[in-house]
Design a protein around this nucleic acid. Structure first.
Lengths: 206, 206
DNA sequence: AAAAACATAGTACCGATGGACAAGGTAACC
DNA sequence: GGTTACCTTGTCCATCGGTACTATGTTTTT
């Protein structure tokens, strides 16, 4: 039986939440830790102490987490998402909106305050554009296919995944990868990713 | 009346889409531009020429866009989201999953291929300049030993090396590492290093 | 005192990974 | 034609990596 837990310290502002979810239960962080289990919907107000750790703990447990903030910001939104929250919204959202968020998050979706979305995605895209330029020197020694395999592997893909994406067999991926290891003188894929990610960060630090 | 448009060039792979949405209409990019209007659901396969521009145009018009890819990647996911898409998934997703995506996106939610989610959120957060906070946040949920193991592994060490350095057995390293994977919601050491990727003082090399 | 979290470590299982060795096909270059 | 480089795949095998289940002792919390 799914339950709706609202984690907050203040006692006000509940009416519109109760309007959205008549069967909700308000509770403290400690109670939430004790009671929440997989499948539950837990709404956490970002005013409470250590909300990040709480979100992380409960989401690992399989609960669906939504963070509500009285002062939404893109940084806080990402802290929330990064901690495992599936939603981030304004604390004084209307009842219909809260219900909408519930539908979205219950279906593995993500819900974030729309204004933040454009801002966040835009700045990220620019950053990613600047990421793929400096590491060409390390890759220049590789052939076309070896380079493709190296980059795919460095992005965290398994051999099988790379094979499927490139439409070749898992064995061929290994062959290319072996050549990559030899040419770049690394011993495994972990070293490879360290080598390739190191190059792309020379812009931010010296 | 909401309509479901599928923009693709190939004629195959449609069966499972039709299973999910019996009333869908397959169409060309040109037809989509002509017919799609606010409220429509438009599914675009990223194989077609100029899918980015198409997504941008239609999403500005108020349509709900979902990009389907045969070769999902975080970069492409960003292109999609940046162009205004509300969903990004694998082109050969199952019918129930497609329906789930439809529910999520219809309610202003965002749906991103789960494997990419961590990467997307992680790299986006870095782009915002909050990397240190993010990493500390992620690591704060770990215990002392788990943190030590996580950082050592993220620096490219093998389990055996970590075991030797920390003077514990290889098996205990695995135990801690398993806990780290669960808590940080990554599936293997590659994803871990991508999450914690910024070479700093993480290396305690001897 | 009871319960929970943590650190340690064992066995077992199985998939993923990397190397060794072999080999067929294409394309370019001398 | 011969040579060389590249792409592709195969088999075999040793090792690594990740998970499940279990267990013992310690510390902390309730």
């Amino acid at each position: 039986m799914k339950q709706h837990l609202f984690v907050c310290q203040e006692l006000d502002d509940i009416p519109r939440w109760k309007e959205a979810f008549p069967h909700l239960r308000r509770c403290t962080p400690q109670q939430a830790r004790a009671q929440a289990s997989a499948g539950d919907h837990v709404w956490v107000v970002s005013q409470i102490e250590g909300w990040g750790a709480l979100v992380q703990t409960l989401s690992q447990r399989g609960a669906v987490l939504v963070v509500l903030s009285y002062t939404p910001s893109s940084v806080e939104a990402f802290q929330a998402l990064n901690a495992g929250a599936r939603g981030y919204a304004h604390a004084i959202s209307t009842a219909p909106l809260l219900q909408q968020i519930e539908v979205v998050t219950a279906n593995q979706g993500i819900w974030v305050w729309p204004d933040l979305l454009a801002q966040v995605v835009g700045s990220t895209f620019r950053a990613l554009g600047g990421e793929a330029r400096m590491r060409d020197d390390a890759l220049s020694a590789l052939t076309e296919r070896e380079r493709a395999v190296a980059l795919a592997v460095a992005s965290g893909k398994s051999n099988k995944e790379v094979a499927r994406d490139m439409e070749i067999t898992d064995r061929t991926v290994k062959a290319h990868l072996g050549a990559v290891f030899r040419k770049l003188r690394v011993r495994d894929r972990m070293q490879l990713i360290l080598l390739l990610s190191q190059r792309s960060e020379t812009t931010t630090d010296a």
